[in-house]
Amino acid sequence: MSSVKIELRKDQIEKIHSFCDTFNNAHGELINVLHKTQGEFGYLPAEVQEVIADKIDMPVAKVYGVVTFYSFFTMTPKGQHPISICTGTACYVRGAENVLAEFKKQLDIEVGETSEDGKFSLSCLRCVGACGLAPVVQVGEKTYGRIAPDDVEEILKEYL
């Protein structure tokens, strides 16, 4: 798990407890609790998982097992502007690889990492269902279609 220890504030712990209560602390609802919690905190660091495990009376290992199984859950915080590159088949066929390579080069980070200034993070998505616009890139909520490597610099500039 992550090496930097985080101190959770009392109100944050209470928030997590309240999510668990909403779902009756039921083991079967763990995934719903994790969705809610990640929605609030943006990610699921070890400390948060410990609080959940404790509250619903489940081994932390089991919570960790579920968190790491599903790609939607993340243990590292996203950047201020999370960049997602669709690498679904339609985008791949139309050159998403080259677009991804350009983002990596410009930001100097790998997929799953966040830039040093915390501004951008890079991830890959499997199909956003906008195959007609392939290749597709999302920055935060905004979607860019028919992207070529040459467009990458322009896109990043919008957020500097």
């Binding site: 083991h27 079967g28 609802e29 579920v66 199984f69 599903y70 939607f72 859950f73």
Partner: peptide, 23 residues
């Protein structure tokens, strides 16, 4: 019930385990 980004959960037995809160 919500999935959480695992392709294999489309398989029906995996889907059922996922709905039960498991991997």
């Amino acid at each position: 019930r919500y999935g959480a980004g695992a392709f294999v959960c489309g398989e029906e037995t995996a889907l059922i385990h996922s709905m039960e809160g498991e991997r």
